[in-house]
Design a protein around this nucleic acid. Sequence first.
DNA 1: CTACGATCTAGAGCGAGGTCTAGATCAAGT
DNA 2: ACTTGATCTAGACCTCGCTCTAGATCGTAG
Lengths: 140, 140
Amino acid sequence: MTTTGTGEEPLSIGEVAERTGLSVHTLRFYEREGLLVGPVRRTSGGRRRYTAVDVDWLLICVKLRESGMPLSDLKRFAELVRQGPGNEAERLRLLDAHRQRVDTQIQALEECRSVIAWKVGVYAEHLARGEAGGLWDPRA
Amino acid sequence: MTTTGTGEEPLSIGEVAERTGLSVHTLRFYEREGLLVGPVRRTSGGRRRYTAVDVDWLLICVKLRESGMPLSDLKRFAELVRQGPGNEAERLRLLDAHRQRVDTQIQALEECRSVIAWKVGVYAEHLARGEAGGLWDPRA
DNA sequence: CTACGATCTAGAGCGAGGTCTAGATCAAGT
DNA sequence: ACTTGATCTAGACCTCGCTCTAGATCGTAG
């Protein structure tokens, strides 16, 4: 699953940026912040070489961020993984709490959507009844 | 719909804060930023008195913000309403564009949720199979 | 009249999450 | 060797959306 692309050759930061949708700046920033699971390998010349594992982790980060997980939680999660086996229960708690937040967020958004859709309907109907609609405005 | 409460008596900023969930600071901030549809009435002594219309507008603002509309768009929308009838088409465009963004966002969140749920499942299963699980870790 | 809490204005401060700059180095093409 | 473009580091800077402070005033309950 989560195939990263070209088999096994490590990728440059630019290539990873393309594949993850993060900017190279952000990739370096995330690394500095300790959001990665391990230190990224380097070439003899000092350039970063990302492995498929690195990229898979980043893709998960993207999903977690996209769904609103704060960097601090992401960092905590990365720390747990870095520590190795033994703390799976905590990792689970962290993820599950986030999942619940996402569910809540989806519900909230759906409510927003219906309010907005209703207002859109009001305007659409108004316009359909003719631009010339005289007595209208009721503050909305 | 959107009954605001006590019939018709204007409300103080504190009462509006309670009813909208915004802080009094934020209410003043929104006003300064031109996010309200009209200038808020004042008592002789200079205190704000919000009408039911003001509060209804604020409740809509809350929904739009909650669903991620930037303050700049909210401001634009307020300006359009302030200008009065004649620009309904633009109001509609603005709202409808936002509705689409909300839909996209919901879809994205649902995808995130399923990725997260999958990972939660992986951990849960691992833990169920016994804490003592020896060979495990695969970087996640 | 006195207290006390709520409100007022103007403006500073803050936390999150990047984003960009400068100046140097690396690596590949010609 | 030279040019070009990608990367490197450290650190400054930016936007967004509030949030808070100071110091004054209002208004209601004793």
